[in-house]
Simulated scan of single mutants.
Amino acid sequence: MKKYFMAVLFMATIAITAQDDTIDEPKWSAGRPDGHAPISVMGDHMHGKGEWMFSYRYMYMNMDELKQGSDDASFDDALADYTITPTTMPMNMHMLGAMYAPSDKITLMAMANYLSMEMDHLTQTGGTFTTEASGFGDIQLAILYKFFNKNQQTIHGQLGFSLPTGSITESDVTPASTPNEVELPYPMQLGSGTFDTNLALTYLGQRESFSWGSQLKGVFRFGENDREYRYGNRYSLNNWFAVKASNWLSFSARLEGLIVGEIEGVDPNLMPMMVITADTNNSGGTYINSGIGANTYISKGALKNLRFGVELGYPLYQDLNGIQLKNKETLTLGAQYSF
């Protein structure tokens, strides 16, 4: 926690100090293809008074094979201690967002999502089976406050809350439960079950042909849900750089450091020694993620202020607690329209 707040102070100091130089330069502008962060970054920008923006994002994330700590692990390694191991888990997420600015200093944001995922398994006896879950996840609400916008640089803070609208009781049939459904392990649930707080600080800078940004974010979870556990806190530092190739196209590169805490508590309906995903010791870890993307922006005509973005992400480093499925590729596509 101390390191998180020190990082916030460090970012704020750099940004505030930057406004002392070249005061006559224009303000940071969103009206260019690199005026928004890569499409995978949320809460990266603000809007002018009275402006609305609606967005849609689609994200595909794949988890495949196992990792124990920072080393690759085999399915036999997992099956030496557990009856079942997952082998792969693809997930699809559809996100709808809305932003509105009642003033130049404040922007309100809301986001809802729909998830569908499946997990393939391997048993000690060599059998295989698949479980599935789908539905709406938790609703995100936030307020963004702009501290300054000078010298082609801007910084804003975010205070957000996550409402536990996503299910934490998703169930499916397994070979051992046939024909009855049983509750699925933690990664297959749609929500957190807790009221979570999101804090973020975002710094943006621009020059004529390129831009950059950095976002420090924390997700803090309090209490326990109805299944007597809570997910671990999340701390991330996202950094990106974008080059404006033309008035309508830009390309970006992103690097993220991410720390995810272990699940605290235990769901009494799960059997931790049955499958690795039901054991809370196999949760959380440290990640370094990368992304390469492109953004397009329409600056005039009937579709003015319409944006499209795409980003392909891939982990560069993973150090996981216990033994877990390792993250693989992530694809994010999105469209944003403001008026």
Rank of each mutant, 00 (worst) to 15 (best):
M1E: 12
W52K: 12
F222C: 02
L270F: 04
N113P: 05
K328E: 15
S177I: 07
I143H: 01
L249I: 14
S290D: 06
S290M: 15
W52C: 11
Y203H: 14
M42H: 03
H36P: 07
W52H: 15
F339Q: 03
F308C: 11
E256S: 07
Q158L: 11
G293E: 01
R254Q: 11
L199K: 05
T277F: 05
W52M: 14
Q124Y: 05
L201V: 14
Y297W: 14
L258H: 09
H156W: 03
G301W: 01
G48R: 06
L316G: 01
E264N: 11
T128C: 01
E228H: 13
G213R: 05
N269P: 00
E262W: 00
N151G: 11
G97I: 04
Q189P: 01
A242H: 02
S171F: 06
T125V: 12
I155S: 01
N305M: 04
N295H: 10
G127Q: 04
P268V: 00
F251A: 15
T197G: 04
L204A: 11
L325F: 02
P185N: 10
G322E: 02
G35H: 10
L122S: 10
N282E: 08
S116V: 10
P272I: 08
L270M: 07
Q206M: 11
Y235E: 12
G232L: 08
M109K: 07
A176N: 13
L96W: 15
E228W: 04
M95Y: 03
T130A: 09
A245G: 12
T174L: 00
R254K: 09
L249D: 08
A7M: 09
M273E: 14
Y229F: 15
E25N: 10
D21E: 13
I106R: 00
M46H: 10
D196E: 08
G160M: 00
Y314I: 12
K328C: 06
F220K: 09
K2A: 08
F10S: 15
M99L: 13
K150S: 12
L204D: 10
Q206W: 07
R307I: 06
L333T: 00
I298S: 07
V173L: 08
A335D: 09
I298N: 05
L122M: 14
L108M: 14
Y60D: 08
T87K: 09
M91F: 02
Q140T: 14
G284H: 04
G291S: 03
M119P: 01
M188W: 09
P187M: 07
R234Y: 05
G137H: 03
M119Y: 03
L255I: 08
W248Y: 13
P90N: 09
E65I: 03
L331I: 08
A176W: 14
G293I: 00
A242D: 08
T85W: 10
Q318A: 03
S70W: 05
S338L: 03
E208H: 11
I23P: 14
T107K: 06
K300A: 12
L201F: 12
K150Y: 12
A242R: 04
E51T: 14
L316N: 00
Y186E: 08
W248C: 11
D76H: 04
G265D: 05
Q19R: 15
I276T: 15
L316A: 00
Q153E: 13
Y297R: 04
V275L: 07
M6F: 13
K2N: 11
T87N: 08
F210I: 01
T22A: 13
T197Q: 13
I323F: 02
